[in-house]
Amino acid sequence: MMKICIACGMPMSQAADFPDGDESKDYCVYCARPDGMMQSYPEKLEGTVAFLMRTQGFDEKAAREVAVRTLAQLPAWKAVRSE
């Protein structure tokens, strides 16, 4: 069973997808800070908005709305959702 990053939803199929190649982690290499810890919600949100704008050219407001809704579906941010 392929692991799914708890913080961004990316499927993690190979060691390179994990922080420092550590396959016991539940979050992916893109959701890790340089020290290996998982990014905070504000960091991940800004990163996701920037990603949607850069790769798919979405409008900033629309990208933010999509990012807020899709992150809220992920295990790492369930708590944020109920705030």
Partner: peptide, 19 residues
């Protein structure tokens, strides 16, 4: 909306590998 978001997520998975 939830279904549309799931569809956007498929495209994001591709846009990520495309980039």
């Amino acid at each position: 909306l939830g279904a549309r978001d799931a569809w956007i997520t498929v495209q994001s998975a591709i846009s990520y590998h495309f980039s």
